[in-house]
Every structure is written in C-alpha cells, then in structure tokens.
C-alpha cells in the first residue's frame, strides 16, 4: 500500500493561513490502513484544528468527509459539494489524492495534510516498511524476491557494499542490509552461484521517462464502454 504520515500540526496550520472554512477530507484506502488519513484521523485532525483556532481566537469552520478513494473520479466528485462551500480542502489522502482532487475539483484549493512516504507493508503492529521503489521494471527475479532498489541505501545491484556489518547497513544499525538478506535467501535456496553474475545497469527510463508515468488497459476501457470482453 501507499504509506503516509501526517504533517506536523504547525505546518498544517501555517498552510491553512487565511482560510476561514476548511473541509478535512479523508481517504478510505491505503492511508486508512496505515492510520494516517482515514475517517478516524480526519476526526482527530479536525478536533485539533478547532482547538487551535479557539486558543488563537481565530474563526475557522472545520468540516469533515471521508471518501472511499481520492484517486478515482467518482469518489473525488463526492467532495465537490462540501468542498466548494469551503476556502480549501485539506486532503488527508496521499500525494495522488491531493493531485487528483485538484484536477477534478478545479475551483477549490487542495492542501496536503500528509507526507507520502513509500510503498510498504505492515510488518509489525503499527510499523510499516518500504518494500518497492516503483521503478517500473521489476528485477527481483534476480534477487529472489527481495528488492535492492528500494531497500539498499545505495540501491546497489551488485552488493553488498563494504559497509555491511553483522547484517546491518552502515547508514544505521537499525536498517537491515538488504544484500545480507538476499545472500541468506540465495543460500537457503541453494542458489548462491547466481550471485556470481554481474547485474547490468538499470534502465531507469522505465520509471522516470519524462513526464508522469502513464499506463492504459484497452480491456478495461472496453468494459467501461459496455463492450463485451473475452
């Protein structure tokens, strides 16, 4: 899922300067699961903003709404009516949600309340950890399902570097050296000989080829048009 964290309250408050009415808009998908921007977090943030406004003696009308997804037009449009009555929408969606709401709603300002961090998994109670770099051309068949692009501090394809010690990364002893993990996995599968091969330089254009990445599916479009599919 996309993992995000709420911005510091001071920063959010600063970005709302001049607004007299704000719609705090949650998203019911990734950021609900990672407990950053779902209905519950919308409630908490809205209360905090109301309290701050009261303490500061400023006028601020805070409304709340959470839609299923801020990355789908049909849901984002649900924010239109409430949002248009306000000076701004404070989106608790990921960066995609903020951008898409801006695009769909056009006339309303959309301000981010979250910092979007990474694609990650829920690895422990309350802990999310990055597992994919979204690089556009997956290479983990060569590394037995473990991604060095996202998980090595230097994204090294022929690791581990000289800073791997006792299974940890030189950058921080709390970071697992992903190349140690790859080595151990290869070892357990009896495939260590694969690590003798040099992995070729990566084609970064698959992920960052100028302008936003775009993908289309003719079969999905056909279904939308009501055409029969195979």
């Amino acid at each position: 899922m996309i993992v995000a964290e709420r911005k510091p309250l001071d920063e959010i408050q600063q970005s709302l300067e001049g607004c007299k009415s704000v719609l705090v808009a949650g998203c019911g998908t990734c950021v609900t699961v990672c407990m950053a921007g779902g209905e519950k977090e919308v409630g908490v943030l809205a209360s905090m903003l109301r309290m701050r406004a009261k303490m500061d003696g400023t006028e601020l009308d805070i409304r709340e709404a959470t839609v299923q997804r801020q990355c789908d037009r049909e849901y984002v449009e649900q924010l239109a009516e409430l949002g248009e009555e306000c000076d701004a929408i404070l989106s608790m969606g990921c960066g995609v949600g903020v951008n898409y709401a801006t695009e769909v709603l056009k006339t309303v300002r959309v301000i981010p309340a979250l910092n979007t961090r990474f694609y990650g998994a829920n690895v422990d109670e309350g802990v999310w950890s990055e597992r994919c770099g979204g690089c556009g051309e997956c290479i983990v068949a060569s590394t037995e399902g473990i991604c060095p692009i996202a998980r090595c501090s230097k994204s090294i394809l022929n690791g581990p570097c000289g800073g791997s010690q006792d299974g940890t990364c030189e950058v921080d002893p709390e970071i697992a050296c992903v190349w140690q993990l790859i080595y151990d996995r290869m070892d357990s599968l009896g495939r260590l000989d694969k690590l003798e091969e040099i992995l070729a330089p990566k084609d970064w254009s698959k992920g960052r080829d100028g302008g936003p990445g775009t993908t289309s599916r003719e079969d999905a479009a056909a279904i939308d048009r009501g055409e029969a599919s195979e």
């Binding site: 394809l157 022929n158 570097c161 330089p201 990566k202 970064w204």
Partner: peptide, 8 residues
C-alpha cells in the same frame, strides 16, 4: 545518485 554501482 547511484545510477550505476561500482561494479558497473
């Protein structure tokens, strides 16, 4: 940057 690594 780390476009390529030391071996590459």
């Amino acid at each position: 940057v780390f476009d390529i690594d030391s071996i590459q």
